[in-house]
Design a protein around this nucleic acid. Structure first.
Lengths: 118, 118
DNA sequence: TCGATAGTTGAATATATGTTCAAGTGTAAT
DNA sequence: ATTACACTTGAACATATATTCAACTATCGA
């Protein structure tokens, strides 16, 4: 057994199998960014926002009205989407218009939608 | 304005635009199941388990050793994956062997992985 | 039968997350 | 200037979730 295999007390491990998989295993960093990516889509409010923006550019007001939610709640969620660089926005006088800005997420989104609709 | 548009005090809504999108909007149920689907992949421990099982059938011990986590923690996560019908298992004497049991999730998983690795 | 091993489970704890509320910013109209 | 509007933001709160711990089941070997 190599040192990295005996970090726990477990006896019944197939060491060879485990080492083979460990060689190609996701790094901690990969696992975290992967799960963070999926986390964006792991909330119904955000999936609705993403769906709506996949149809058309919308201001915060439009989204709030569409989802029947408060401006504040929507704005908080848009900030998350902004931080993850999934949406971009333009300001026109007092209004702020959002659009989708990541085709990968759109692809994931539609894969997932296909999945639940089958 | 139709009654469904004035649930909030917002004035600057583009009613026509909003109504058009609302017609094809995700239902609450769709949004919830979609986000639940993505929630499965929204945790680094589970993404690692799914990755490992995409390579080979493994017992709980193997997974715990691979992830350097407690049996209990792994077992709790496997229960979530079982409840979502993403893994299946077979018992062989004292050991329980898990395998992946949902190709859709595997597809989503690899889409996401492609995304973060680009 | 007894002890050891593989795994599950419920309760407890800690942390993350979503919404609300209240206060703030910036722009435009009066 | 002042008011109204379209947001944004920080704090507070409630809820969800991941891990640990301890207790439990079930199977195997001595």
């Amino acid at each position: 057994m190599t040192p990295e295999d005996d970090v726990c007390e477990i006896k019944a491990v197939d060491g060879k199998k485990v080492r083979a998989i460990r060689r190609s295993m996701l790094t901690d960093h990969e696992a975290v960014s992967l799960s963070e990516t999926f986390s964006v889509l792991a909330d119904p409010t955000r999936t609705k926002i993403i769906y709506a923006l996949s149809r058309e550019e919308l201001c915060v007001c439009d989204i709030a009205s569409l989802l029947k939610m408060s401006l504040s709640a929507v704005s908080h969620q848009l900030r998350i989407l902004r931080n993850m660089r999934l949406v971009k926005f333009r300001k026109e006088s007092k209004m702020v218009y959002y659009t989708l800005d990541d085709e990968h997420i759109t692809t994931l989104f539609h894969e997932g939608l296909k999945h639940i609709r089958e």
